[in-house]
Design a protein around this nucleic acid. Sequence first.
DNA 1: ATGTAC
Length: 503
Amino acid sequence: MTDTTFDADGITLEKVREYVWEVPQEGDMRTPARVLASEALLEEIKEDKTLEQIKNTTHLPGITNHAICMPDGHQGYGFPVGGVGALDAENGCISPGAVGYDINCGVRMMRTNLTYDDLQGREEELVDSLFANVPSGLGGGGIVKAGVDTVEEILERGVDWALENGHAVEEDLLHCEDEGVRTEADASKISQKAKDRGKNQIGSLGSGNHFLEVQRVTDVFDDAVGDAYGLEEDQIVVLIHCGSRGLGHQTCNDYLRKIEQQHQGLLNQLPDKELAAAPAGSQLAEDYYKAMNAAINFAWVNRQLIMHRTRQVFERVFDRSWEEMDMHLLYDVAHNIAKKETHAVGVGPEGRPVRDGDAVEHEERELYVHRKGATRAFPAGHPEVPKAYRDVGQPVIIPGSMGAGSYVLRGGENSMDLTFGSTAHGAGRLMSRTQAKNEYWGGDVQDELEQQEQIYVKAQSGATVAEEAPGVYKDVDEVVRVSDALGIGDKVARTFPVCNIKG
DNA sequence: ATGTAC
């Protein structure tokens, strides 16, 4: 390691500038790979296959500018969790592994006008009531029990279905990425098996790192943006982190197998089978995109039902209407998706995308922006930022571990130039689930959190608590510090857990 | 992440 390079066991990164590192283009790489991280985070990132994977990603046809690894990057299926890959939507490809198994895993934050004082002494009652009323854990059981026809409606209509069926109010849609619906969804592109898995899971948290957390706002770093978001110190908020459950998982699996079979030519060009991709314009690329959009809609309805049920739980516990408690959706943002987006891309003399320094002009290009474990972070003024937040930028919600709290950021000024409008999505794991279960015991973790931090955790399984112990995660403060310093997602507020329910 | 294994 020198001032300008970082040696990571066989892969040498060159420092472009503070927090920007590059794996130079070589061999069959189509572009360089970039890692946005501090030296401290790089020391952790280099411990697994993250760097190799982000390098592999640059082999995908149509990769534009560079494959990008976020400060919270870690190893995933083929493509790192914490990766952004913008692939040309005309001449490139789309890759299910670069979206992730949990299609539209994401987070939403709901505000309240309660303060920490209002809750103290009632944490147990609240956590018990949430746990009893919000389905969680592996397998079936959701807030809505329905048939496949209902699933199909949800797949195509997204949160609009929830609105029509009394699980949402109009404003909920406005404060959701894409207003809670991907219109290019087609339920007929989702397998019967996936729909069958989904029909018993409409409105359910799931397991693993998914949770519902009641939190208090401990810091507001930017008063003006905090104001626009309706956040102030000591306020109680609710954070919901979950995805598309078995339906999304099945959909990812279905299309990976089909793409592996039908696009072997492309597969053979790639260094890792897990990056299997369908060429833009192919039938499977179109089908996967429509299916993925449908699974995205399912996940938004899932988070919506859980949020609305949480309003009802608060109504019972605090004996007031949710409107009186000001329980409005701040924002819902996905962190496992791909989307056709138009971005300004540097183009060389032959009209092909080139690195910015070599560009003779910039052109608007349509790209499949894959964000896997990465959050959209559009800056102020972007037309896709809801009107209420347009002047300050899109809210970005970064969940931390259950002992460390979470952050609210706003899309930064540099995000469009550096990351196709994206930033990190969380703390990132430090150790595997298996390793975590050897290091921790769920009951001990729970007792310690309650006694030392006054955090009340209730889970279906002790193993899940061990797997999610605060110590298995990277330092979320450092991840957010780097995002803020790069100007891709700026710090707005920090929260700390009060009650947490999980699978 | 996931009815935690093709």
